[in-house]
């Protein structure tokens, strides 16, 4: 399997469809629409990459997720803002201790998951925002090893949480109850099948495969659920100083990667030979 770049969305600038200072997070909904967060703003691009809507958040957006009902959850420092499909703010969950810095949001059957990078753990809430349990917190190092400053995870169709643990060079599998099921990945400095550097992968997305991004040198890769490398999506387009590149996959198999220095979303399409 190989990938080719089909589109670049955004870029650094002050135009409505561009990002002025930051691009931190991506999410795609069931219709292939792309939500991109940065500059304390959420931008909605349609499936063809045209800007459809943009609205502000009260704090810088660190993470985005779209629920099954079309509600948009925006993770921020100290809070999660929930918008309805029309970009109207419907709720705000606040909590300095449980939501220190929300760098990832996901959904399981009856709950909401939030990755708190300030405490290096994933929080499990019910749909009303009531705290249930920690995920990934109870280990010798008291959480995920994230020198990169981002807890990122994705939830697969079975409700299993795939969380990046960059300091261990692993993507770990957890149940929503917090039980560790296993992991994929190992360190390797030269083999593309391994994760290089001090702490990789930084970000993860899941659909039929596990999609990850790495920093230094930046690249996006695809693994199957057994940890076998399927493809290197790309590495050349990204700025070498990129780090914590958010990744998202839509139903068509398109891979969206946010370049945090160029402030652009690179869209890749799988090519079947």
């Amino acid at each position: 399997m190989t990938y080719r770049q089909i589109r670049v969305i955004g870029g650094k600038g002050n135009a409505p469809g561009q990002f002025a200072t930051s691009l931190r997070c991506l999410a795609v909904d069931a219709h292939g629409q792309l939500f991109a967060g940065g500059d304390s703003e959420i931008k909605l691009f349609d499936a063809a990459g045209r800007l459809k809507r943009r609205w502000s958040t009260s704090r810088p957006v660190l993470s985005l997720a779209v629920a099954g009902d079309g509600a948009v959850y925006a993770g921020q420092p100290g809070q999660i803002e929930i918008f309805d499909g029309a970009a109207k703010l419907v709720n705000t969950w606040r909590g300095e201790t449980l939501l220190g810095r929300v760098t990832a949001i996901g959904f399981v059957k009856d709950g909401v998951l939030a990755g708190d990078a300030a405490d290096r753990a994933i929080r499990h809430f019910d749909r009303t925002g009531k705290f249930r349990n920690h995920i990934g917190k109870h280990n010798p190092v008291n959480g995920f090893l994230i020198p990169n400053g981002v807890v990122d995870f994705a939830v697969d169709a079975q409700g299993v949480i795939h969380a990046a643990n960059p300091g261990k060079h692993r993507v770990e599998r957890y149940l929503p109850t917090g039980e560790l099921l296993g992991h994929i990945g190992r360190f390797h400095g030269t083999d593309p099948a391994g994760f290089g550097g001090c702490c990789n992968p930084t970000n993860v997305a899941v659909r039929d495969h596990i999609y990850v991004t790495e920093k230094a040198g930046p690249r996006a890769k695809v693994y199957d659920f057994n940890g076998n490398l399927q493809a290197v999506v790309a590495s050349a387009p990204f700025d070498p100083n990129c780090k914590n590149m958010s990744v998202a996959v839509d139903g068509r198999g398109l891979v969206y990667v946010a370049d945090t220095v160029k402030l652009a979303v690179f869209v890749f399409e799988p090519v079947t030979v």
């Binding site: 810095r101 990078a117 300030a118 994230i146 020198p147 990169n148 400053g149 100083n241 220095v261």
Partner: peptide
């Protein structure tokens, strides 16, 4: 041009 947003 690059900054670390928070102490990590």
């Amino acid at each position: 041009p690059y900054s670390r947003p928070v102490e990590t």
